[in-house]
Design a protein around this nucleic acid. Structure first.
Lengths: 362, 362
DNA sequence: CTGAAAGCGCTAACAA
DNA sequence: TTGTTAGCGCTTTCAG
C-alpha cells in the first residue's frame, strides 16, 4: 500500500532532508540555517523562518555521527588514565574536574578511557584514535620511549605529568621538586630533624622529583639523609598503613621520627590512622604532611603541598584544543609545548613544631 | 599532472576502499574481513590473507564515525551528573568507577556530561542524544515529572537514585532507609540517646529516606525525635562544619549530643574536624558516623553505612545495555526495571558507646 | 539567494 | 565466494 520504504533499522528522528521537504527547500538550505554551515551564502529571512518552523514541528535533531563523518570532527576529547589498584583515585578526580570544565567551556565532550596499566596503551591507543575523539589527554602516563614514538600521528596528544618527554606531545606539569623542597625546608625550619619520607613507587617519576626536593632541602640545611629515611609505598592509604607499620615494628623502642612527609594525601592519612592506633597525637607527637591537596586533604585539614590539579586539567585542554584547531586548519599539529605550574604550601592542622621530648616508638 | 583529487580537508588515514584497491578486491570484502561485518558470506583464506596484508601495509584504521553512522551506534554510553558546588564529588567517583568498569567489559566507552544543575537537563539532554551516545545513565537526577516526560525517546535511559520514577526509565537504588535505620538502631542499642542528624539538603530525596530511617529507628526504640535534632546541610564537608558550628554556638553550655549521624562521609569528616577543634575526642566524647562508604571513609576509618556504589554503576550499565540491545533489535526499548540493592554497616573507628559522663558544649 | 551533486567511510541487501 | 548498489545524515563545492 505505502510507497514508504521499510528500513530494517530504525532511522534517526528527523533529518535535514525531512525538514527541507517540509519547508519546501533543499536539505542544504536547512543545514545552513539550522547548523550554521559556513557555506558562502545566506538565506532570506522568509525561508529561514519556514525552515525553523519545520524543524520545530518535526523536532529536528542534528546527528552527531553524520556531522562527525563529514567534518572529520566529533567535538569530543579523550582522557586516558589507569585504574590503579582497581580504583580511580583522588588525583584523577581533581584533574578530571578541571578537564571536564574546560572541555565544556570549549564546547567539547569528554570521554574517559581507563586501562588496567600503561603497558596496554601501545595496543589500545591506536584503536581509540579512530575518529571518536579529536584529541587525547594522557594522565600521568608511564610510557616507554619506544611506545611514545609509535603514537598515531593523526590525533593530537597532550600529557599531564608525563614520565618522559614524548615527541610532539605537549606536557603540563607542576613543579613537584620545588613543592617538596619548600615543604621540607619549612619542616626543617620548624625544628624537625628526623623526617621520614614515605615516597611513592619507584616507577613514578613524580615520586623521584619529590625525593629530589626532600634531599635538596636537607642538603641546604646541612643535614644528611640516610637511606633508611626514605621508604616506598604506592599512592594508597592502605599501602601507607602497611609500610609505616612494618617500619615502626622494625624500629620499636627507638626514637619516633618527629615528622612524616608522605607521597600524597592518601598515604598521609594512612599514616595518621596508624599513629592514632598507637595512641600518638598528630601533630603534637608527630607531624604528618601530604602532597597534592586533593579533596581528601581539604576535608581533613591535612597539611599538604598543593598541586593545581584542576588548573592543570584546564591547561591541558587548552593546549589540546590549540593542537586540534591547528590540525584542522592543516597546520602541523604536533608541537611539544611544556607548561610548568607552581606548587603551594597548605598549612593545615597536622604540622607543628616537633615535641619538646623525644617520643619512643611503642 | 596528477589525477588525484586534492581535498581541502585531510582525509582519514586509509579506508576500506584503499585496502580493497591494494588487495585487488572490493571494499566490502575488506569490511567483512577486517571489521567482521555480519553479512551472510565468507571470504576465501587466500583473499583474506591478501586483505590482511594490505591493511597492515596501509595501516588501516576503522573510522568510528562512519561505522556509527551506518550502524546507528557508537558503542559509547553517557553518564550525566552535576558539578555540585562546582566540584565532582566522591559519590560520583565511586559510581563512575563502577560504570567505567562495566562499560569497558561490555566494549563500551563512557562519556561524561556534567552540568551545573539539573534544571538544565531539560534543555541539554536532547542535544546530547544526537547519536554520539547509545544510551545515558542519569546519576542522582533531580528531575521534575514534566521534564521526565519530555525525555527524547530514541535513546535508552537508566537512572541511579532517581528522585522520581520516570516513565520507561529503569532505576538502580540502594535501600537508604533501611541503611539509615540499621545504623541508628545500632547506635541506640549502644546506649546513645541524644543523636543529632546532620541531614542532606531538602531537595534530596535520598536525604529524606535517611531521615525516615532515622525516625523509624527512634520510634521502634520508643524514643521521640524532636525537631531541633535534625539539621540540614548540603553534602559537603564545609557545609557540615558550618552547620554544626552554628548549632553548637546556639546550644553553648548545654549537653553535647552523644553522637552525630551525618548525611554522608564528607559531612561526617567536617563534624569531626569541628569537634577536634573544640578539644573533643571522637569517639570517646562524641561518636560520629557517615553515609556512603566512599574513599573518604575508607581512608579515615570512618564508621559509615556502605552503599554499593560501584556495584550500582555495574547494574546501571547492565540495565542500559539490555535496553540498547533491545532497541537495536527493534524491540521496545523502554522498560522501567527497578533494582534495589542492600546497604551494609561499616564499623570503622569513630563509633563507640556514649561517654559515661555528659559532656557539655564548650 | 538557492539547489543539485558529490563525497565523508562504512555496512547491508541483492545479484552474479 | 565475490562484486554491485544503495544508503546512513550532513557539508561543501559549484552552478544556476
Amino acid at each position: 500500500m505505502s510507497d514508504q520504504a521499510k528500513p530494517r533499522k530504525a532511522r534517526h528522528a528527523a533529518t535535514l532532508a525531512d525538514v527541507g521537504r517540509e519547508a519546501g527547500v533543499s536539505a542544504m538550505a536547512a543545514s545552513t540555517v539550522l547548523n550554521g554551515a559556513r557555506t558562502s551564502t545566506r538565506i532570506s529571512d522568509e525561508t529561514r523562518q519556514r525552515i525553523l518552523a519545520a524543524a520545530d514541528k518535526l523536532q529536528y535533531r542534528p546527528n552527531a555521527t553524520a556531522r562527525g563523518l563529514a567534518e572529520r570532527r566529533l567535538n569530543t576529547i579523550g582522557l586516558a588514565t589507569t585504574l590503579s589498584g582497581n580504583e580511580l583515585n583522588q588525583y584523577f578526580l581533581e584533574v578530571f574536574n578541571g578537564v571536564i570544565e574546560a572541555a565544556a567551556a570549549a564546547g567539547q565532550n569528554t570521554t574517559v578511557f581507563a586501562m588496567p596499566d600503561w603497558q596496554q596503551v601501545g595496543s589500545r591507543l591506536p584503536a581509540i584514535c579512530d575518529g571518536r575523539i579529536d584529541g587525547l589527554i594522557l594522565l600521568a602516563p608511564l610510557i616507554n620511549p619506544d611506545d611514545a614514538a609509535q603514537l598515531p600521528d593523526h590525533t593530537p596528544f597532550v600529557a599531564i605529568h608525563a614520565n618522559h618527554a614524548m615527541p610532539g606531545v605537549g606536557n603540563v606539569a607542576s613543579d613537584e621538586e620545588a613543592g617538596a623542597h619548600a615543604m621540607v625546608a619549612h619542616m626543617l625550619s620548624l625544628g624537625h630533624r628526623r623526617v621520614l619520607h614515605l615516597a611513592g613507587p619507584n616507577t613514578s617519576s613524580g615520586a623521584q622529583r619529590r625525593i629530589d626536593g626532600f634531599r635538596r632541602a636537607h642538603a641546604e640545611a646541612g643535614l644528611t639523609v640516610n637511606p633508611g629515611q626514605i621508604l616506598h609505598s604506592d599512592y594508597s592509604a592502605s599501602s601507607g598503613r602497611r609500610v609505616l607499620t612494618e617500619w615502626l615494628e622494625r624500629h620499636r623502642g627507638q626514637p619516633m621520627p618527629e615528622a612524616i612527609f608522605a607521597a600524597n594525601d592518601a598515604v598521609a592519612l594512612g599514616c595518621i590512622d596508624i599513629l592514632a592506633g598507637l595512641g600518638l597525637r598528630v601533630p603534637q607527637d608527630v607531624s604528618v604532611v601530604g602532597f597534592d591537596d586533593t579533596l581528601l586533604a581539604r576535608t581533613t585539614r591535612l597539611a599538604t603541598v598543593r598541586q593545581p590539579l584542576r588548573d592543570m586539567g584546564h591547561q591541558a585542554v587548552s593546549l589540546l584544543m590549540q593542537a586540534i584547531e591547528a590540525k584542522h586548519r592543516g597546520q602541523p599539529a604536533r608541537q611539544a609545548t611544556e607548561v610548568l605550574l607552581p606548587t603551594e604550601l597548605v598549612p593545615g592542622q597536622t604540622l607543628s613544631a616537633p615535641p619538646a621530648d623525644t617520643v619512643l616508638i611503642p
